[in-house]
Every structure is written in C-alpha cells, then in structure tokens.
Design a protein around this nucleic acid. Structure first.
Lengths: 247, 247
DNA sequence: GTCTATATACGGATAGAC
DNA sequence: GTCTATCCGTATATAGAC
C-alpha cells in the first residue's frame, strides 16, 4: 500500500522499538572497544585482542564513572588506575597519555554514532518516517551507550582547540539532519511551515536531555520508548498538518 | 476587562519583554557581586566595598572564562591569578580556598535565581500568564547571567557530596514550578490533559539549551525574545485547548 | 603483559614584605 | 590591600623488574 504521499494519513512505523533496534544494530560496549582496538593497533602496546578488549572496557567504564563525578581534568591517572584495577604502567600500555585516552574516546565514539544514524536514515522512505527514525535511533543509541554520550557532551571542552574544531561539525550534524528533514517535510506539505532551525535546535535539546538527566528519568521509571513517544507526540502536535495517523 | 476565566480567549501579556524585565528587576553582575560581599563579610579579608565588588567581578568573570574551557578542576589558582589580574596572595584574601570560591558561586547564584523567579510568579494571575512568565523570566535571567548558569550547570558535580545534596532541590525546582502550573491549567480546563511531568522536563531542557548553547544562538543572531516566543508557541500548540489568543 | 619505583613538574595554600 | 617567594603534596609519565 502506497500512502507515503498522502499527508492526511501517515504511517507511524511503530515496528521500530528499542528491542527491535538492539537486535538489528549490534551496538554494544564490547563492539565499541573492539573498534578502538582495531583502530589503534599502532599505539596500543598489547597485541592479544581478547586482553585488550577486556581491559579497554574496564578503562572506559572507570573513566566514565570518575569523570561523571570530577570531570576529565579532575580525574588523575592514579584515580583511573585504582578504579579500573590496572596499574599505572598498565594504563600507559594502552594509551600513551591522558589526552590520547580522551581523543580516542571522542574520535571513535563520534564515528560510531554517525555511522549508525546515517545507516538508519536510509531505510526510511517518507519524510515523516525519517523524522521519527532519526529521533528514535538517537534516543536508542544514547540509551545503550549513555555513559559515552554524557562524557562526550561534558568533556568536549577538554580537548585541544585543534581536536575540538575537528568535532564541531559532529556537534551540529544531528541538528542539521533534523533541520533538513523538517524543511523537506514542509516543502512536501506534510509538515507545517515553521522556524525549522529553531525547531531542530530544541528537538536536539530534548534528545540530549535523555542522556544528560538519565538519573532523573531512571528514578521516575520512564523507559526510552515512553520518552520517544512523548517527544514525537510533542513535535507532531506542532508540525503535523493533519493530526490523523495510522496505527 | 476580566477575561482570565475564559479559556477561549487568553491574554498573552506581551508587555513582558527582555527590556521591561531589565528595568523592573535590577539584575546585574554587579548586584550579584555586592550580594556575595554582603554575605561573606566574615571571610573576605578586604573591607572596602568598592574594592571588593570590583575585584570579585574580575575573579568571577575569569573563573567563568577559564572553566568554560577546562572545567573547575582543570583551572589552577595560577590560571585564575593570571586571568583575573590579581596575585595568588590577592586571590586568597577573597576566598580561603578554591572550593570556597565554587561553593560561594553556587550558593549565592542559586538564591539569586530562586528569589527573582518566585517574585515574578506572584504578579501573574491566570495560570496561562503564569506559565508564560516562568518561561520568560527564566530565559531573561539566564540571558543576563548566562556565564553563571552555564558554570552552575557544568560544575554542579564539582561540589562535595554534602554541598551537592543541598542544591538537589534547586535542580528540580524550576521543573516543579512548571509541572505544578501545567497541572493547574489542566484542572482549570485551559490546558490539555498530558503527561505533565515529562512535559515539564522537556520544557526545562529547552530553557537550559538557551544558556548551554549560547554560542550557537549568538552566531545565528537569535534574540532572547525570539527564542522565548518560539518556545512558548511550541508549548502552546501542544497544551492550549483553544489556540485563539489575544494580542 | 603487568607491576613497582621514581623523575620531574605542577598543584593549592601561606608567610611576610611593602 | 596587594605582592613575591616558598612549602610541600600530588600530578603525569617512564624505566626497568618480573
């Protein structure tokens, strides 16, 4: 049934849930560590993949835990050594400096997120579905690797100016993606004519709130799918020309 | 003309703008420094108000500048000495320790914000006006003391657990205020029945985005009144039972 | 592959001159 | 009221044992 061009009845694509996402995209902390290993074979002194992945996981988890309390610059390598269970010397076998640890996390993480988001966008045909997909995927991703999203947001400032500039585009890329989708939808007559740039900006803020205030949402027992539905409903009441939707 | 109880036509109260706010509430960085002086006469070694206020302003501005780049724990007292133009010894005449500087900023700033918000809420009669006032005042406040809001958000974690607990309520107080107002509006039949807690949560996120991403909004030449109007329009399309408004 | 011990530099804080 | 000089603990990073 081809209903994509009929703005009066929109297909919601409710088959995309957190569970289905987990199964489709093999996003996990382990996959993340393997990616770091493969990309940094040159500088990581240890060669056995299994050992490296295991220890990287411990290092990253410890980093996220400590930095969420004190920030990256407030974390000493002694803190990290103690929290991760590795010795000082051990740590430096994985990263040549504290800054390299930061830059690696930012670099690999950003690419990771970009890849999944881009991939997920392709499969959706209508503009309406695409908007829903972007928002859901972003929330699902930040649900699985919440610690990374939080860290990346809070410690963007801790990078050198050179490194920071390199990720300036990434900072705005989700927003651009939403912005373009809103514009496209408005041109097609599916969405209302609005200030799409400001809209994309506040939508991004709502997505970020999910991982920035996770403690709050956890305490209130809000699931990621509940949050996604709420955000989508909020946006749709502002943007949909015709509020009728198919279930 | 009494139209407050007629949900069909709502008075927007567009007399509240950034300019009118500035004139009504004497919120300024200087007023902030004077408050710090008055409250800390005991520990500040310098006694001449004019000198203290002038130097506190330099210390705070320098703190905000450095911390926005490196975070509080990444800022050394030597950094602060250089950036503020005071010597090391000079700095310690104003704050007995680095942590005291942090705690003072958090304590005085939080009280400052709470006072203005509470005061501003009283004057508005209808629930609809009250919601608009809370949102506008919060944005206007964070426009004037943006650096403080940013710092406070980013460095909440840098406080000791004891101090942090003390401000846990403050963290949620704006959200509660919005939450209560939404519930009240729904009871009165002016607002739609929604998940008010989630709504308050994302509204708060939109307010925070104004000071967290100020560089972005500046570059795009968005004024605080434009932003306020956009956010209010967004919320109203979701919440207003009847979209008609008076101008 | 992981550890302990250590080099060298930088951190917060203070004493006492002006 | 402000400065310089300095104490001393802790930071990053490495060398070399096991």
């Amino acid at each position: 049934m081809d209903i994509q061009n009929n703005p009066a009845v929109l297909e919601k694509d409710d088959t995309l849930t957190f569970e289905s996402f987990r199964e489709t995209y093999q996003v996990s902390k382990e996959a993340f560590c393997r990616e770091v290993f493969l990309e940094n074979k040159g500088t990581i002194q240890i060669k056995k993949e299994k050992t490296v992945v295991k220890n990287l996981a411990r290092i990253f988890e410890a980093t996220f835990r400590i930095c969420s309390r004190k920030g990256f610059r407030g974390m000493s390598m002694r803190d990290l050594s103690q929290e991760s269970g590795l010795s000082m010397g051990g740590l430096y076998a994985y990263f040549r400096s504290k800054d390299e640890l930061l830059n690696t996390l930012q670099r690999v993480g950003n690419r990771f997120v970009q890849q999944v988001l881009k991939e997920a966008c392709k499969t959706h045909v209508s503009t309406y579905q695409k908007l829903r997909a972007i928002i859901k995927i972003h929330l699902y991703l930040s649900e699985i690797v919440q610690a990374w999203f939080f860290f990346s947001y809070m410690e963007a400032k801790s990078m050198s100016k050179q490194e920071r500039d390199f990720y300036k585009d990434a900072e705005l890329s989700t927003e651009s993606l939403i912005h373009e989708t809103l514009k496209q939808g408005a041109e097609e007559g599916v969405f209302t004519e609005r200030d799409h740039l400001l809209a994309a900006s506040v939508i991004k803020a709502m997505l970020q709130d999910w991982y920035l205030k996770r403690w709050k949402h956890s305490k209130r027992k809000i699931t990621v799918d509940q949050y996604a539905d709420f955000v989508l409903g909020f946006i749709e009441s502002y943007y949909l020309v015709n509020q009728q939707t198919m279930s």
